[in-house]
Structure formats: structure tokens, C-alpha cells
């Protein structure tokens, strides 16, 4: 069981909290405290909107340990509206066509169990087809 590790990641995983570089204003996800663009310290936290587009995707017909019972499932590269790209599962994929460029939105879902059914439940971001366009 890896409780400390997952606990320290909770903010970013549950809610897509990343960072913004105070020097060059680049938005950063995953947070890493150093700006990947200008190399300077970047520790200011930043709440991402959770909106983005599918940059690439694949359908996993078999999953690794912890994910096997959920197969088949989609994993995608998501280009967030704010700029960064992240790797995430697609969820709630129904009849709509999944394709590169489709708009998606972040939801918080169960990722897997830590160890087995006795371990903690790990939650984190996934993306789904946009449910309903809502005025901001």
C-alpha cells in the first residue's frame, strides 16, 4: 500500500490543481515546482478548468494490474485548454464517436484500489465527452 504517495498527489489528482509560472505565465501540469519552459522556480498553484480536446487515444483491450477488470477502456492524451497535455482515461464513452479533436471535460473518478479490495480507493481525473455546454 502506498498511502503517502497517493495522499501527496491528491490535490492535482482530484481537482486538476497545477501550477503557473510567475516568470513566464506558462500553466503547468503536472505540477513540478520548476517551469518546464523557462527553468525558473514555479510554485504558484493554479486551478485548471478541466476542459480540453483529445490529442490522441487508444483502446486498451487488457489492462495492467489494478485495471484489468475495467478493460476495455480508453486512454488518451488530452490537450488542456490552458495549454498542457496530460495522459488520462476517457470515461462514460457511449454512442458518440471518439476521435482526435473531440472536446472533453474532466471528472473525478475511481482510478483503482491501492493493492486489493482492502486498500484505499484511489480517485483522480478522467475525461468524458462534454455533457452539456454551460455558459461560464
Amino acid at each position: 500500500m502506498e498511502n503517502p504517495r497517493h495522499w501527496r498527489l491528491k490535490k492535482q489528482r482530484y481537482a486538476l490543481v497545477g501550477e503557473i509560472c510567475p516568470h513566464c505565465a506558462v500553466k503547468i501540469f503536472p505540477p513540478r515546482d520548476v517551469c518546464p519552459e523557462c527553468g525558473l522556480e514555479a510554485k504558484t498553484s493554479y486551478q485548471f478548468s478541466g476542459k480540453g480536446k483529445i490529442y490522441s487515444y487508444t483502446k486498451m483491450t487488457d489492462g495492467p494490474a489494478g485495471f484489468r477488470q475495467n478493460a476495455p477502456y480508453f486512454v488518451a492524451l488530452i490537450q488542456l485548454n490552458e495549454g498542457p497535455m496530460i495522459t488520462a482515461q476517457l470515461t462514460d464513452v457511449g454512442d458518440e464517436e471518439i476521435k482526435i479533436g473531440s472536446p472533453v471535460e474532466m471528472v473525478t473518478r475511481k482510478l483503482r484500489e491501492d493493492g486489493d479490495q482492502h486498500g484505499a480507493i484511489l480517485y483522480g481525473y478522467k475525461f468524458r465527452p462534454v455533457l452539456q455546454e454551460v455558459s461560464a
Binding site: 477488470q69 482515461q89 470515461t91 471528472v107 473518478r109 475511481k110 480507493i121
Partner: peptide
């Protein structure tokens, strides 16, 4: 609910 949903994830949304 989908296989990745429970009362917690649904409450979050």
C-alpha cells in the same frame, strides 16, 4: 453507475 463511479465521485460532480 459506471465501474469507476461511487457515492464519492457522484457527490463530487
Amino acid at each position: 453507475p459506471g465501474p469507476d463511479e461511487d457515492t464519492i465521485t457522484m457527490s463530487i460532480e
